[in-house]
């Protein structure tokens, strides 16, 4: 067979993006064609969000503010966190399967293909049920945004914040799931732990926590930059300078995920069958 392909030495970034989006769209097409129980799952996600909404409404019916934060500002916090988690599931759900793939040896083929393994794993599944989480998260944000009187001028910041939140959230989840390259197990306990703590703590203003917690959330596992920092800036609780921390957190968390994955692949032993 005559050959016209050009072997690439490394993979150009544009090609990596193209591989990612093609894989993602192929799966979306397939989901749309075979929707199965998608709507049931999506509704379950939405119900969860309505409960959050209700919780905040009840809370603020009884207290005027939490550490200087009002109802609408808190809605923004919750909403942005939901959107970040939902986007992780919609766009990068495969990362959660890292542990299972390591145990089953399903990383094998991905190593033999000319594309980054982390991209192939991340794009390997779409958690379509989380569409509800994203839709309601955005609804909460819009409602909170209007209620807090933030105005139209800051909307681009809001949109960028959502994109960055999705990336930071996904990258941190990926880095923690990659621990399963060493600790063999299906369940990504560290990533679960992180979203569990986020779900409890990051819906509150960071100011109510002790300094140690604040430092960890800002600089060690920078979950604060997912929802707290952008919301605090647009609502005037923090100075605009803090916005610069968001791209830094994006770069840092992505590099962290890529680095842990790379080390994980060096330690990868496949499976014995």
């Amino acid at each position: 067979m005559a050959d016209t392909q050009t072997p690439a030495i490394a993979v150009p970034v544009r090609h990596v993006f193209a591989i990612y989006w093609r894989t993602w769209f192929a799966q979306i097409r397939s989901i749309v064609e075979y929707p199965a129980d998608l709507w049931v799952m999506a509704s379950a996600g939405a119900v969860w969000n309505i409960l959050q909404f209700a919780f905040l409404a009840v809370l603020f019916a009884n207290v005027p503010d939490v550490a200087g934060w009002g109802y609408h500002e808190m809605l923004l916090l919750s909403g942005l966190l939901s959107v970040a988690g939902g986007c992780n599931a919609l766009f990068w759900d495969g990362a959660w399967s890292t542990g299972a793939m390591v145990i089953k040896g399903d990383i094998d083929y991905r190593i033999t293909r000319p594309a980054p393994v982390i991209i192939q794993v991340g794009s390997s599944h779409i958690g379509m049920q989380s569409i509800g989480e994203v839709v309601f998260g955005v609804a909460m944000m819009v409602y909170g945004w209007i209620g807090a009187g933030i105005g139209f001028a800051a909307i681009p910041i809001g949109v960028l914040a959502i994109a960055c939140a999705a990336v930071i959230q996904s990258a941190l989840v990926t880095a923690l799931c990659a621990v399963n390259f060493w600790i063999k197990g299906q369940a990504s306990i560290f990533a679960f732990l992180m979203i569990e703590l986020q779900g409890n703590a990051m819906k509150m203003p960071l100011g109510i926590f002790p300094i140690a917690v604040r430092l960890v959330a800002m600089f060690i596992v920078p979950v604060a930059f997912i929802n707290f920092v952008p919301v605090a800036v647009v609502t005037g609780h923090m100075s605009a300078w803090w916005l610069a921390g968001i791209p830094a957190a994006v770069v840092g968390s992505v590099l962290l995920a890529a680095g842990v994955y790379r080390l994980g692949l060096r330690a990868y032993d496949s499976a014995g069958h």
């Binding site: 392909q5 192929a26 799966q27 989901i31």
Partner: peptide, 23 residues
């Protein structure tokens, strides 16, 4: 890809390897 038609898997690989349409 478990949830995709066979043809889609082949096309994803085609693209990943940079195989030309003719080949």
């Amino acid at each position: 890809w478990w949830d995709l038609p066979v043809e889609e898997s082949l096309k994803l690989l085609k693209h990943m390897y940079g195989v030309s349409d003719a080949d």
